[in-house]
Amino acid sequence: MTGNAPFLVVGIIFFLGMYAILFERNLIKIAIGITLLEASANLLLIVLGYRTGGSIPVYTLAGGTRTMVLPTPQALTLTAIVIGLATSALLLSLIILLYRHYGTLDVREIRRLRG
């Protein structure tokens, strides 16, 4: 049961993020929702990468067929975090530009493009 707790946390963070993106009206809150989504994806990668009872795969010391925890998902997560950082920075700077143009952060008022 406790083994599944990390997945539960991933699910909760994921749905919080989706909720914020879909139903919040403030641009900053939408940006927070996107970062929550990124956090849940990263956490999922880390959790899925762990093998119960696994050891470190050191090149020379690796034994026969023992379970090992490969560092691949950690490397993937680091890459994803860096990408997420770049996206968040750009997202916030676009929000600043939008605020300068429209004078508001409310998505209901920022809709010059339609039809």
Binding site: F14, I21, L27, I30, I34, L37, E38, S40, A41, N42, L44, L45, L48, G49, T72, P73, L76, A80, T87, L90, L91, L94, I95, L97, L98, H101, I110, R111, R112, L113
Partner: peptide, 26 residues
């Protein structure tokens, strides 16, 4: 800027979905 923001929200969500799928495969 508005178009770019809209595109950004959509494509960041879709990129995260791809990442989650990659996690499942791994």
């Amino acid at each position: 800027v508005e178009a770019s923001f809209k595109y950004m929200v959509v494509s960041t969500i879709s990129a995260m979905f791809v990442l989650i799928a990659v996690g499942f495969f791994y």
